[in-house]
Structure formats: C-alpha cells, structure tokens
C-alpha cells in the first residue's frame, strides 16, 4: 500500500500525535485523487482548501501536476508546504 507522509502543520488537521510531528499513514489509493479522498475520509478536517496549500512529492520527485500521476503499491507521497523562490 502506498505511504502518505504528512509533514509539519498538516498534523494540526489529523489529530495525530504532537503538532508538527511527521507522520506516515498507509492508503489503498493508486492515484492522487484517490489518496485525497481516502485521507479526507480518515481526517475530515483535511479539506480541499487545506491540501491545496501543499505541494506534493512522489517517490522523491517534486510533482507540479499530481492529478496526472499514478502511484505504485510501494510509492511514497509527501505533502510539503509550498515555498517561494527568488
């Protein structure tokens, strides 16, 4: 099952452990939309408006278009706060 890593402030919406701790959850989903649906079923506070504020890395690669990506059973999807650049 793919692993989803929730970093930083996302933990505020999951109620898992201490605020800020990195936490991993397993999902059945094999694409990004399904990952979101499953997460939102687990953690209702993770609304679209919350998740939309985060970037996504899949298997170590920052992905700009997660809607187009599929996951492998051993994939790891990480939500990462968006960053600004110079």
């Amino acid at each position: 099952m793919p692993t989803v890593v929730l970093t930083g402030d996302l933990r505020r919406y999951t109620g898992l452990g201490e605020q800020g701790q990195i936490e991993e959850v397993q999902v059945q989903a094999l694409n990004y939309r399904a990952v979101r649906r499953e997460l939102q079923a687990m953690f209702p506070l993770l609304e679209d408006a919350v998740l939309d504020k985060y970037g996504v890395a899949i298997d170590g690669v920052m992905v700009q278009t997660p809607l187009l990506e599929t996951l492998e059973p051993d994939s790891e999807l990480v939500f990462i706060a968006k960053i600004a650049a110079g």
Partner: peptide, 14 residues
C-alpha cells in the same frame, strides 16, 4: 545526507 535519506522537509533524496 545522501541518496535515499529522508530530507527534513519530507521527501526522500534521489
């Protein structure tokens, strides 16, 4: 850090 290590910001390094 090296390839395969998890970066502090979350993702694993290639």
């Amino acid at each position: 850090v090296d390839e395969g290590d998890r970066a502090f910001f979350g993702a694993k390094y290639r």
